[in-house]
Simulated scan of single mutants.
Amino acid sequence: QQMARTNHPCVYLDLSHLDADFVRSRFPHIASVCADFGLDVTCDQIPVRPGAHYMIGGVTVDDQGRTTLPGLWAAGEVTSTGLHGANRLASNSLVEGLVYGARAGEAASKAAKLIPDDFAVPTFSSDSDLFERDDDELNITDLRNSLSSLMWRQVGIERTETSMQEAAERVEFWDGFVSNRELSEMAGWELQNLLLVAQLMIASARARTESRGVHLRSDFPRTDAAQARHLDIIATS
């Protein structure tokens, strides 16, 4: 909000009131990075701006890391374990990854032992009438950058129904252009996945008509006790 009011690309952090040795010992990495840019964290103003660094929510798993898809286990930031509420406490993600990584690995190992030795992975074949193979005209880098920019502007720190509806329409348009192609490069597969995740994020944010934790709806600024629950999006087809 301060950046919007001042039309400035950042705000500034001032640590000059703290003991210099304490700052350097407490934040050695930040001090080193700032020094590379000619900034002394103990006395200079440090430019700061928001950034997305963790995904709260994801694929629903049980306490063993088992998903609803048979044979698939998951652990870490990709999952929704139920351990995090409306915000993630610092460092909880590391502990979660260690615990669920071990649990998922052990459970998947036990399940694998039950699969016959003659098990063969089913052959996947696509319907050539449904997919376009030629991706020469698809600028994957441009679409990925556009998607990132759109999500930051329309589904970023502050969200409204109007902004998210516009984002949903744009992402749906891009998805229709990308997902009907059988892409051959990893960057293309990642773009298809990013478009899917973007649609799920928008749908979830639109469904939660309140502000809670890191989810801020400008059109619904208050917290609604009736919505104190996790939201699940389930595929119907």
Rank of each mutant, 00 (worst) to 15 (best):
R24P: 07
R88Y: 00
L15I: 13
D40M: 00
I233S: 01
V171H: 05
L183C: 14
A90Y: 02
G105N: 06
D136F: 00
S25F: 01
T236I: 10
E77I: 01
G57M: 11
V99C: 04
A167F: 07
D21T: 14
E182V: 03
F27W: 13
G105K: 06
T162E: 15
G82E: 04
R144P: 05
Q45C: 03
S237I: 00
S91G: 01
F22T: 12
E106C: 09
A20F: 00
V95G: 08
R181I: 03
E172A: 06
V48P: 11
E185S: 15
L147N: 07
R212A: 14
D14I: 07
E158P: 01
M3D: 08
C10I: 03
Q1D: 13
A86S: 07
L196I: 15
L98Q: 08
Y12G: 05
L194F: 14
E158A: 05
A111S: 15
F37V: 00
D142R: 05
L143Y: 08
R208E: 03
V78Y: 12
S179Q: 09
A235W: 09
H53R: 09
D44T: 14
H17E: 12
L15N: 06
F22D: 10
V155C: 14
A102M: 13
R66F: 07
V155G: 00
L13R: 12
R229A: 15
D224N: 15
F131I: 07
Q154S: 14
V78E: 02
P9Y: 03
T123Q: 04
N193H: 08
E210W: 12
R133F: 14
P116V: 05
Y12A: 06
L98I: 00
S109L: 15
A205I: 01
S128H: 01
F37R: 06
R170L: 07
R88W: 00
F220L: 03
M55G: 04
D14C: 05
A226L: 12
S211H: 10
L18E: 06
M151S: 04
M3R: 12
N180A: 08
D129W: 01
E158G: 07
D14N: 14
A205P: 01
I157L: 07
P28W: 00
L196V: 15
L114G: 12
E169N: 05
S93L: 08
G85S: 02
S179G: 06
Y54R: 03
N92C: 07
E169A: 14
